[in-house]
Design a protein around this nucleic acid. Structure first.
Lengths: 247, 247
DNA sequence: CGCCACTTTGATCCATGTCAAATGCGGTGG
DNA sequence: CCACCGCATTTGACATGGATCAAAGTGGCG
């Protein structure tokens, strides 16, 4: 059973690595839609595959009405919201295979802006148009329930691990989470590309950017990681893991 | 259209205040099940209403397989999990109208233990038995999607507000969130009962219990709140709100 | 009445925020 | 190709919020 949407872009030269459809968070729904191949009978616009997004471009604007869920195919994104004092706060990063916008399902509008950190591509699922797709509601609903449930569980973990850990632990957990997500999606867990700025990381982790910088160099001096501009290589995963375990 | 399950317990004497069914998070599903009244044809055990839970009792144990979602009818609960270093961490409080266990929908097991902070009661929805209820899958699925979506949005807010606020702001936000939830459910937003210990609050907010204590007395000295053992009266909601706005 | 758990208050220390300056890096124009 | 500029990052010095340790106060319950 070849997954058609994964075939064409196999070796397009300098393109960044893509996550395989089979590893993508949207896959259950794509399956239900037969990947919206022409012969599937799914109308145009329900599932748009591989939409390119230039670096710096907004994929979603805060408070925009909800219409679609996106899956990151390649590249990366950051989610930014405004807190009560109206200052920007990074609330998440999206890597290949991640879903963007699931929280809009309930609220009817997006609760954050999403910006491409690099040249990226996404698959877009038009939720409003889903009923037109003629697919079994049950399948799609079940898939959505699963997705949302995973989202809840993930958020839960993140919250738990971020609050009341010190700066070193937060950074270690952050790096490990990137590595794990990368691995889950079938990419390398050792060579990571941190396309976000130190400020973005700091904002996300609730730290000062100076602290992020200091601790990253500390990790590097301990030979736990190797950091060259935005390329991160994990040398000693065990050491990072131990850090989170020690209280 | 009287809501049957709200009728009988109207004035049972010394019982704590109950949330009305119409204000309960489970209501959309209860509606779909006709409140599981005898004449509704819903089998026994799908929706158990008003199960009493004694103070200190476990409603859910960590890692227990998932079977049901609960709605708090009266009283209150705390959710406790263990972090990587195996120490206990409070990850949430449940007040009347709140749903417990929604994250199990996806993970198939509960990710925290839930303990009654006082004599409480819950409605129990047996998710496994739902298909037997003969209700339209669509209705129930839609309701579940809405519930999960709200959960995601809520978690999002909590995470955003907790990380990178100082202790005063966290406490202020905590009190305000209790007040708002109380109000949303149709109860008083000024008179709150904090049945959890200072340690529980501290654990939840990622602070030391001494800090919680100190700041609560500080708020009291400023005349923003009045605190008598576990009864909290909000005197100056505006002041608390301003605190979160200032960065 | 007295024990035990919880809470409050006080004193001290350290991690991390803040401010400031130096360094590095990419882009642009000459 | 180099000179210059602007921005991100790194590094240093210092201040402080909150953790930690310690001890006293408070209330519930046998």
């Amino acid at each position: 059973m070849p997954r058609a949407c994964c075939l064409p872009r196999q070796a397009t030269g300098s393109r960044p690595l893509e996550v395989a459809c089979s590893e993508c968070g949207l896959d259950p729904i794509c399956l239900a839609l037969d990947y919206a191949e022409p012969e599937s009978g799914v109308p145009e616009g329900v599932l748009d595959r591989r939409q390119p997004i230039p670096r710096g471009e907004l994929l979603i604007s805060l408070n925009q009405p909800f219409h679609a869920i996106y899956a990151v195919k390649s590249g990366s994104f950051k989610a930014v919201t405004r807190d009560l004092s109206n200052s920007e706060r990074v609330v998440g990063f999206f890597l290949p295979g991640d879903l963007i916008g699931t929280d809009g399902l309930a609220t009817e509008h997006y609760s954050y802006s999403v910006r491409a950190l690099e040249e990226s591509s996404v698959c877009r699922l038009d939720v409003d148009a889903l009923p037109l797709a003629g697919r079994s509601r049950d399948m799609i609903q079940d898939a959505l329930i699963t997705l949302l449930g995973q989202e809840v569980a993930m958020n839960h973990m993140v919250t738990t691990s971020l609050i009341q850990q010190n700066a070193e632990q937060r950074l270690a957990a952050f790096i490990l989470s990137l590595a794990r997500r990368s691995e889950i999606r079938g990419l390398s867990s050792q060579d990571l590309r941190l396309r976000m700025s130190r400020s973005d990381i700091a904002s996300y982790l609730g730290l000062a950017r100076e602290t992020v910088s200091r601790i990253l160099t500390r990790f590097q001096n301990l030979n736990w990681i190797r950091l060259r501009k935005h390329a991160l290589r994990v040398h000693d995963q065990k050491a990072l893991e131990q850090l989170s375990v020690l209280d």
